[in-house]
Amino acid sequence: MSTAATLDRPRLRRNPVVRALLSTWGARLTSYVAFLVAWQLLAWYVDRVPEPWETFDFIWREISGGSHGGVRPGEFWEHFSATLGRFSIGLSIGFVVGTVLGIALGSSMFLRALLSDMLLVLLALPAIIWAFLTTMWFGLGWEAPVYTVILSAAPFVAVNVAQGVRSVSPDLHRMSEAYGVPRNRRMRSLLLPAVTGYLFTGLRFGVIISWNAVLLAEWFGAVDGVGWRARLWYDAARYRGFLGWAIIFIAFIFLLDGLVLSPLQRRAFRWRKSAAADVETEGLGGFDAEELSTMGL
């Protein structure tokens, strides 16, 4: 990777302000400023797009319980906690189901042959379909979001876990068989450490998919929660409300992933240098080339 010769004039290069601007942090900051400027320009150009300032103002009022000028005062925690609850329950169940399924698929060639096509179909099913189906089945309430989350997340978790189980080299298996290592010790020392990394990847993707799914499901089939609240504002044509909630929603997952999950995953993958590199190059919704190709089976 070559570094472009940005400024040849040594005097300018020594200027501390210029150096700060050209640093990594300077670049990131500049990109955020550029984004805000672009947003503002778009808002001026297109009537219905809310402006940055009014959007942030909305977010502040909503969180702090302030009034929105007669529409409905901020009820932030009530809705956020409802969504968080559904998200957690759905994710936990989906994760457990997915892990069990993944282990089964990873260990048994028979099951793999039997179920891999169905798994492919389940992976390809968009969350919106689950949102529709569960709403049609269970009506408006908490069920639709929770089941949508489970159904969306479980296949992805399963695929990652299956990959993890299969990654344990058959040589190691044969070695432990030859030494007569008992089953549970094999599970603990051989299988589990190798799978842990993949479990984490599965968890991370599961989190993102679940979070997006719960928003979608609540939009159509709930009576409270983040998705429902976002829809309220949208239906009222108060787009700053919609965008504000969307930002709250995205910000939460960024924080969760960046502060909790990513560091945890890096630690879990410490022994696999290349995999850790994969983690770093990809962001939240992104799939690494290798991972997806195996996910596509």
Partner: peptide, 9 residues
């Protein structure tokens, strides 16, 4: 990374 993480909805 952000552009790829925004929920589809």
């Amino acid at each position: 990374v952000g552009a790829g993480s925004v929920p589809g909805i």
